[in-house]
Lab assay of single mutants.
Amino acid sequence: SLSVDNKKFWATVESSEHSFEVPIYAETLDEALELAEWQYVPAGFEVTRVRPCVAP
């Protein structure tokens, strides 16, 4: 099958004044980091952490 098993990760994104967490959907932690950097670094943010979303 061609289905992709995307998992939810939380990326911590920082600017000079703010820090916030955004959801990233990817297959692996490395891919989540790449996606977060691709989305947020060009906008002037720094991705400081990516972690798996742990269900309660």
Rank of each mutant, 00 (worst) to 15 (best):
S1V: 10
S1N: 12
S1C: 15
S1L: 11
L2I: 12
L2S: 10
S3R: 09
V4W: 08
D5F: 14
N6A: 07
N6K: 15
N6F: 14
N6T: 14
N6Q: 11
K7V: 08
K8C: 15
K8E: 05
K8F: 13
F9I: 01
A11S: 02
A11W: 02
A11R: 00
A11K: 00
A11D: 00
T12C: 08
T12M: 08
T12G: 03
V13Q: 01
V13A: 02
V13H: 01
S15V: 04
S16F: 10
S16D: 08
S16K: 12
S16W: 09
S16N: 11
S16T: 07
S16M: 11
E17T: 11
H18T: 07
S19E: 05
F20T: 03
F20P: 00
F20V: 03
E21I: 09
P23K: 07
Y25I: 05
Y25S: 03
Y25L: 04
Y25W: 14
A26S: 03
A26D: 00
A26C: 06
A26V: 02
A26F: 01
T28P: 01
T28H: 05
T28E: 02
L29Q: 07
L29F: 06
D30L: 11
D30G: 10
E31C: 06
E31Q: 14
A32S: 01
L33R: 15
L33F: 12
L33W: 15
L33T: 09
L33E: 04
L33Q: 09
E34V: 12
E34R: 15
L35W: 06
A36G: 02
E37H: 09
E37K: 15
W38P: 03
W38N: 13
W38E: 13
Q39G: 05
Q39C: 15
Q39N: 06
Q39L: 15
V41S: 10
V41R: 09
P42L: 07
A43E: 09
G44V: 01
G44I: 01
F45T: 02
F45E: 02
E46M: 12
E46L: 09
V47L: 04
T48L: 07
T48G: 02
R49C: 13
V50M: 04
V50P: 02
C53D: 15
C53Q: 07
C53K: 01
A55R: 10
P56M: 10
P56K: 04
